[in-house]
Amino acid sequence: MASQNIAKSIASIQQSIDHILETTKNLPEETIRCNPTEDEWSILQILSHIAEAIPYWLGEVQTVVAMPGSKWGRGLQDPARLAAVTDTERLSVDDVKKHVEELKDEVESVLGNLDEETLSIESPHRNFIKFGNKPISYIVDHFIDEHISGHYGQIKRNLSKM
């Protein structure tokens, strides 16, 4: 059974996904594909990034649970991260949205049975000494929950510029 804290994190992540999907539900495809500026991601790039990033971070949680003390994390130049936001013209908006919707079940499946003891397991970030050893709860809270919430804010900012 999930602890109260992880249950709140799961609910928050799923709520952010719901907000993202509701916000993008009736948008024209040209709006979803439009980059507000040359340096900003389109909504489709954001959705594609979410569809890649959340499974990545869930996998990092699973690795640390299976091998406490193992290194976790990646840098901004990670090839899979970059591929998710490159050449998005070829992506189907509906398929990407469906993938994002399916993340709600994946989040529940991976995080739902973690208890406080498991969430407190600490491991080092592979690239950044500044993080030091962090508990699994940090990965969940910062790299999944806050991350997806931040991208919801990014989508709203994109829309405000159009």
Rank of each mutant, 00 (worst) to 15 (best):
G69Q: 08
L82D: 06
E106S: 10
A53G: 08
K97F: 07
V64S: 00
D39K: 14
R81V: 07
I148T: 14
Q62A: 14
L58S: 05
V140I: 15
F131E: 03
N35P: 07
T63A: 04
D115I: 13
T88R: 05
L27R: 00
P36N: 08
H49W: 07
V61E: 08
I54N: 00
I121S: 03
S137H: 06
P79D: 11
K104L: 12
S42H: 13
W72I: 00
N127R: 07
V140A: 00
E108H: 11
T88K: 09
H142C: 14
G59R: 03
W41Q: 11
T31G: 02
V140S: 04
S109Y: 10
I43M: 08
H125A: 00
A53E: 09
K134Q: 15
K98D: 15
E38I: 14
H142E: 15
E117S: 14
T37L: 13
V140G: 09
Q62S: 11
K97R: 15
N113R: 12
I46N: 06
N127P: 00
A66F: 01
F128E: 04
P79H: 11
V96E: 09
A53I: 03
H49D: 12
L119A: 10
P36K: 04
F128H: 02
L114I: 07
V107T: 07
P55K: 01
H147M: 13
A84N: 06
K98H: 12
Y56E: 08
I129H: 05
V100K: 04
N35M: 10
L111Q: 05
V64Q: 00
K71T: 04
S109F: 10
H125G: 01
V61L: 04
D145H: 13
S70Q: 11
S137R: 12
E106Y: 07
A66S: 13
F131A: 06
G69A: 05
L119S: 01
S109P: 03
T88D: 13
A84E: 06
R126H: 01
I121K: 12
R90M: 13
E60H: 00
I121L: 10
L58E: 05
D115Q: 12
C34I: 02
T63H: 03
I129W: 03
L114H: 06
V93G: 12
A84F: 05
E38H: 05
S92C: 11
W72R: 01
L27C: 01
V100C: 08
G112H: 09
R90C: 13
N26C: 09
T118A: 10
V100T: 00
E117T: 14
T118M: 13
A84K: 05
D105L: 15
P135F: 11
R33A: 10
T118F: 00
E102N: 15
A80T: 12
L91G: 08
D95M: 10
L114E: 09
E40Y: 05
E60C: 02
E117R: 13
S92H: 13
M67Y: 06
N113D: 15
Q45W: 07
V85Y: 00
V61W: 01
I144S: 04
H125S: 02
A84Q: 02
L103D: 06
T31S: 07
E122P: 01
I46M: 07
